[in-house]
Amino acid sequence: MKKKTRTFLVIAVVVLLLALAAQRLLRKSPAGFEPERLNREEEHGDGIAEFIKVKLFFLSETSRLLQPVYREIEVPEIREDLYRKFVSLLLAGDAAHITPVPSDVQLRSLHFLDGGGTLLLDFTESLSASFPGGTAAELEFIYFMVDNICYNFREIKKVKFLIGGNESKSLAGHIDLERPFFPDFSWLGDK
């Protein structure tokens, strides 16, 4: 390789690296977890299924912080289906931990706002009807959902809740539920 060409390539690479580094610094990358793509693949009727490993956090009697549990999810073709499966895992709970959601609550639907940065979760009306009340419980539910989702899927910046297809002023008379919630990872133990 000629000397000139080599110098050109070196300068081009350096400029590119510097630009990428600057871009990374400018963009505030949220703390979070990159779900691990598993090597395990399974034969399905119409092809091979991929799996990712996600880190879920649940409440515990012994700690005020949400505690981690790992799960595997089969990656569906449609992104929304992945989030739907993820929320179903949260609702299903973990035998060794507390799930801060009334047991009869289901996810009705899921949508995106703001070009995908805000995830809108629409739960069944039992969320407010069966909710036990209390500020602490409301915050436990909100950050259980928001932190789990935003921690595992960095592309989601905030989460907004609907109940029975409608905006709700509050879950049980305390926290304003009409606004979307940003994550607060200080709720998470063993990040």
């Binding site: 409440l59 009697e61 507390i98 036990p132 009340g133 209390g134 500020t135 602490a136 436990e140």
Partner: peptide, 17 residues
Amino acid sequence: IHVNSSFRKSAYGSETY
């Protein structure tokens, strides 16, 4: 004025917001 409630039955104490 409120009194609190948590999914964690062991939670206790007072807090002001």
